[in-house]
């Protein structure tokens, strides 16, 4: 089975470049604006789009993404509406891979089987669930694979060679390497250390390895993308979005442009990477 994610990486390989992956919270700052932002991302240069599923208690996220989740929840976002957002995006785009990222409880309460069926038919390609390590694979990972969705696992600096095979066993689509021990938006990733870690993971898998956490600027994105199959930027985009809001946290005329502009310059950084590395 070839998913949109597999097709995307095959195409990028032909173009000899790394993927630029964006993360934004679904429904931030409100469901309608969020849809317009996500629609604007592919044109601005996003190769793969991660959409955060808001949760009240995001224990691996820093203050920026916590606040984004709360803005979305306050604007009435739910898991059902996140799936509707995906459906609406798919009306005009059938190629850009969409990955939902978040925490397990809202999915567990929605119902695992129903969620997987609804996500698949909405046009979701993969899932990243922060609080489901391989030890809990029977919960969602194995059913997701069966339903035809990629289950993208996080590998971290604490995932040693002994543990990597367990982490990679049921991973598909790509491997998401978390470049720092910490929460989103905290430390900056060091490109050469990341390069070594990516090399280590690649000795264990043929899957593309993408890197996230701690990448904020086009330069940093270029540095990371030179060593990896993709670079993920989240907090910096969420910050750009927040900076465009009015004092009550509502979207303004500048909001969509603020996110699209930063996406475009980050994408330029990533696109320059492979050539720069050679």
């Amino acid at each position: 089975m070839t998913t949109r994610i597999d097709a995307c990486f095959a195409e990028l390989k032909k173009q000899d470049r790394s993927a630029f992956i964006t993360f934004l919270m679904g429904g931030d700052p409100d469901p309608a604006t969020s849809l317009e932002i996500i629609k604007a991302l592919p044109k601005a240069g996003a190769d793969i789009i991660e959409i955060g599923m808001p949760f009240t208690d995001p224990m691996a996220d820093g203050p920026a993404i916590q606040a984004a989740g709360l803005r979305a929840l306050k604007a009435g976002m739910t898991l059902k509406k996140t799936l509707e957002l995906v459906c609406a995006f798919r009306v005009g785009n059938d190629t850009t891979p969409l990955v939902l990222m978040g925490y397990y409880n809202p999915i567990y309460i929605y119902g695992v089987d129903k969620f997987l069926a609804d996500a698949k038919s909405a046009g979701v390609d993969g899932l990243i669930i922060v609080d489901l390590p391989p030890e809990e694979d029977t919960e969602l990972c194995l059913p997701a694979i069966k339903a035809g969705l990629n289950f993208i696992r996080l590998a971290t600096p604490t995932t040693d060679d002994k543990r990597l095979p367990a982490v990679l066993a049921n991973t598909s689509g790509f491997v998401y390497y978390v470049s720092v021990t910490g929460i989103t938006g905290s430390a900056s990733a060091n490109a050469s250390v990341v390069g070594e870690a990516v090399g280590r993971i690649k000795r264990h898998t043929k899957l593309p390895v993408c890197v996230g956490f701690g990448i904020r600027t086009p330069e940093a994105a270029r540095g990371i993308a030179a060593h990896a199959d993709g670079a993920v930027v989240g907090t910096a985009l969420v910050d750009a979005l927040r900076g465009s809001l009015d004092p009550d946290g509502r979207a303004t005329a500048k909001t969509i442009g603020a996110v699209a502009d930063l996406t475009a310059s980050l994408a330029q950084g990533v696109r320059g990477a492979k050539q720069a590395a050679e």
Partner: peptide, 20 residues
């Protein structure tokens, strides 16, 4: 051995914490 009391309990944590 997986930390379950019936369906309850478990190890629902981020990968960073799992080795520890």
């Amino acid at each position: 051995e997986r930390g379950h009391f019936g369906i309850f309990g478990g190890r629902f944590v981020a990968e960073t914490l799992m080795p520890l």
